[in-house]
Write a protein that binds this DNA or RNA. Sequence first.
RNA 1: CGGGGCGUAGCGCAGCCUGGUAGCGCACCUGCCUUGGGCGCAGGUGGUCGGAGGUUCAAAUCCUCUCGCCCCGACCA
Length: 588
Amino acid sequence: MGAPCVPCQGEEMRYSRMFIPTIKETPSDAEVASHRLLLRAGYMRQLGAGIYSYLPLLKRVLSKVESIVREEMNAIGGQEFFLPALHPKEVWEESGRWEVMGQNMFRFKDRKGADLGLGMTHEEIFTYIARDELRSYRQLPQTWYQIQTKFRDEPRPKSGLLRVRQFTMKDSYSFDLDQAGLDKSFDAHREAYVKIFGRCGLSFVQVEAHSGSMGGSASTEFMVRTNAGEDDVAACPKCGYAANTEKATSRVAKIEDEKGPDKPELFPTPGVRTIEDLTKPPFNVAAHRQIKTLVYAADGKPVLALVRGDQELNEAKLQGATGANEVRPAHPEEIQEWMGAAAGSLGAVGKDTGAPFEGRIWADLSLQGRENMVTGANKDEHHLKGVTPGRDFQPKWADLRTAMAGEGCPRCEGTLDLFKALEIGHIFKLGTKYSESMGAKVLDEKGQEKPIIMGSYGIGVERVAAAAVELYHDEDGIRWPLSIAPFHATVLSLQARDPEVGAAAEKLVGQLEEAGVETLYDDRDERPGIKFKDADLVGIPLRFAVGKKGLAEGKVELKIRGEKEMRLLTIEEAVAEAKARVDKARAR
RNA sequence: CGGGGCGUAGCGCAGCCUGGUAGCGCACCUGCCUUGGGCGCAGGUGGUCGGAGGUUCAAAUCCUCUCGCCCCGACCA
């Protein structure tokens, strides 16, 4: 961080004048560490569900994250914009997403009755500009970005800053003439993101992801491994394969079945409602020998999804396989009407011919080649045994199951691990989804009209800060990485009324500022204990304590937040040490 | 959208079942005291009990409706 360095250079910040409302008691409804600590340490306050006010300390952290993002985006040729958050309906209708976004978009009418939405992402708005202004391949490629507030009416805001309804996002968009250009833009972003998150001090992984309602061909998520996260990642420690479980595939061991009868046989199963019930006596059918039959509505039309009894269906994969816009579990009444039986006794046998399921049965690949299995008979409290997929019914084969820990890696001989993770960034190859629907085209060198090939790339700014807190905290408070801490250093005057202590503290603060070390000077007339507690809670990396004890030897005390040792240094040594650490963090 | 929980002083909570003067701790203010890990003593300030309606002589407490927040699930660019 050189010249454009953010908030404060050469300024002197006195704790007694700064608004840092720390609280001793833990707010009762804060569950995750970042939520609890950001509230307690005076970084933010809640205004409503998923709506937070950012206080001065948090604003400083976010500004630092944004500066790092800006530097790295500019370094790959990104140009900063600032687009409206207020979007007329018509723009979103062009891409079809006014409909697709559903309740997740905040919507309202203006005084004239016109429909407006609050921006939840900006593909449409950037494409609108590109469509009007980009005419020739000579103008490509372009990389445009902004750091802006997004609004999403989340069904369930939670976990403090991790899932909110208003937040700051760096979003960028690349415009290229061809696929090779997109690949370059995508890779440039990937490298920029690695630098950004690295400079922010985060440890993170890149994982293959599902594109969701963004559309497009490929996407990579940047994830921080933490139990506070809401995503599940399957990863192979051996080859590095990592994917969101929405997308992850796996290798399952082949199961050899015993030969069964030539055709399915009906048998009564009184009281059996679940896979587990069937595994118990007197039936004793192992879960992996059962076919789990799930009834879904895909864009309103019935489909059957089959997975092994010991596996879970992945709805995102089912949606992909069916090509539907929306899939949902069928309601009990629909199940009764379509299947003629209630959940618990459902099966695919006999359903592949005739309405409503003809040609609409999908089965997971792990059922391929299996025989002599057990499944529901579509007659309450009855099942069929000796069922062989492909003989007794004809499904369409697809990867439908959710990958599980302990299954084989799809890329190598390794075994998959599963862990919770928090998404802090996501990069997408969009292709022509928006340029085609909105008519963003350029002429190529042969004079041919071509839709612009687009990419879209996001970083959740608050999530970067919250992820840092999740990753780096202890029972006393936050332990910020130096690069995004609200201040590099804090100086505590332990006996604020003692003139000698005050003078030494002021001298140290002055020299630190001069050396470019952002310093919070705790000049309050408080007991030392309060200052130590607050310093730990707020989490500033370098803590200098100036007190009578040390001054007796002409020294001040340095403690690095999160480390045990304290060191006694002269003021000159202290300043040199702080400067060295800060310069090193900036150089990264 | 389904299930559960909670709204009483700035924060954390008790009181509610069994209706009858609204309480405790922290914070805050004043004074004294204390000063290397959220001191001590004394005295204070502060509450339409989320809102509306109802029952009752009387409602924080019982009933109805409503708003908000949190958790689990569903959903989630």
